[in-house]
């Protein structure tokens, strides 16, 4: 049985009220109409925040995951529980009512992916808020969540990730001789990190959760790109095509004029480049818990590259950041 706790009222309200409390159901958060109409998650703000992930005490390498359920039809249930692959799948953990919110908190190690369901007065339900869902081998739908530092592929297909890896590497500093040397020097002996320092993993995670509304853009553009690339190189698989070809195609996308691009399927390839650039720089330089910037390697690159005349670094990121990633003696992360 997994350990669980009930956090106090303020803790639950601090994480629920802003997003869930409201008077009238209106589809205020139905981004680009890409969510199914009239769902609870179109009514609430930041549906992706649920279940709530928080830091666990320093050194535990885990998240505190708080499940929150609230009834939306005015009927408050008598009994709510949650069960998932993080515990005994058929031994639901009872959730405790705090006002209209039912909640329970479990501690789950980093880099895990789990599915779960609520049992509400005896009926099994997917989480009506959390947009992440998966279907199991028996065709049953579950809600899903993942913890920090997650490296498991969630939404991107392998071929999609391969093309993305090539595209993002073009933007990052590690394609240069200097960057390569840095990677070789900085990484553990038998560990070969790709040039994108986890950016593709970050993009996979943000498309699975925070910016799920952009999965459509990636799906569509990577599919078109796959066709465009194959039309120009009959020999190689896209992941093996030349850098010059990728540079050429990205340049064309930036100009909005790509030979062979189906504008009916995606009308603004330049918009996709901007999206990709935002995600690439964010994934490279964000806190590593989001899945990119593995071990703070992009920060370390800036630290090494920018030096004063006396040899000291001009980007001492470590002094502000928690251990073991950084070396701040007081901040616990």
């Amino acid at each position: 049985m997994v350990d669980f706790t009930y956090r106090d009222e303020t803790y639950v309200f601090n994480r629920a009220t802003r997003y869930l409390a409201r008077t009238e159901p209106q589809q205020r958060h139905n981004y680009l109409s890409r969510l199914q109409p009239d769902t609870v998650r179109g009514n609430v703000a930041d549906a992706w925040r649920f279940p709530v992930l928080d830091g666990a005490p320093a050194g535990t390498d885990a998240n505190e995951v708080t499940f929150i359920y609230r009834a939306w039809n005015g009927r408050s249930p008598a009994e709510v529980a949650v069960a998932g692959t993080f515990g005994e799948l058929y031994q639901p953990i009872p959730m405790k009512a705090v006002g209209d919110y039912f909640s329970v908190t479990v501690t789950i190690p980093f880099n895990q992916v789990h599915r779960y369901r609520f049992r509400v007065d005896g009926t099994w339900l997917v989480d009506p808020i959390n947009p992440q869902q998966v279907t199991d081998a028996r065709g049953e739908t579950w809600s899903r969540f993942f913890t920090d530092y997650c490296t498991q592929r969630l939404v991107l297909e392998t071929w999609e990730a391969n093309i993305l890896d090539r595209l993002t590497a073009l933007l990052l500093p590690f394609r240069t001789e200097l960057g390569r040397q840095f990677l070789d020097r900085s990484l553990p002996h038998n560990y070969r990190l790709d040039e994108s320092v986890g950016v593709v993993n970050y993009i996979d995670k943000i498309l699975a959760r925070e910016e799920n509304h952009r999965l459509f853009d990636y799906r569509t553009c990577l599919s078109i790109l796959n066709e465009v690339l194959r039309a120009r190189d009959f020999v190689n698989e896209p992941e093996a095509m030349s850098r010059a070809l990728y540079e050429q195609v990205l340049g064309e996308m930036e100009s909005g004029n790509v030979a062979g691009w189906d504008l009916d399927r995606y009308g603004n390839p330049n918009f996709f480049v901007k999206l990709l650039k935002r995600h690439t720089v964010t994934g490279a330089f964000c806190h590593p818990k989001y899945g990119g910037n593995v071990n703070g390697i992009a920060w370390a690159y800036l630290e090494e590259r920018f030096r004063a005349e006396d040899g000291g670094t001009l980007f001492n990121w470590r002094q502000a950041v928690e251990q073991p990633l950084g070396n701040n003696p007081d901040y616990n992360g």
């Binding site: 540079e247 650039k277 720089v281």
Partner: peptide, 29 residues
């Protein structure tokens, strides 16, 4: 930054390839 042209295909001959490293080299600190 996301709108700045980064590809050689769009630059004049001899222009620097404009990537994240170039950007930070110019701007950070």
């Amino acid at each position: 930054w996301v709108g700045r042209v980064f590809s050689r295909a769009n630059s004049m001959p001899g222009d620097q390839f404009y990537d994240i490293a170039d950007f930070f080299n110019q701007e950070l600190g």
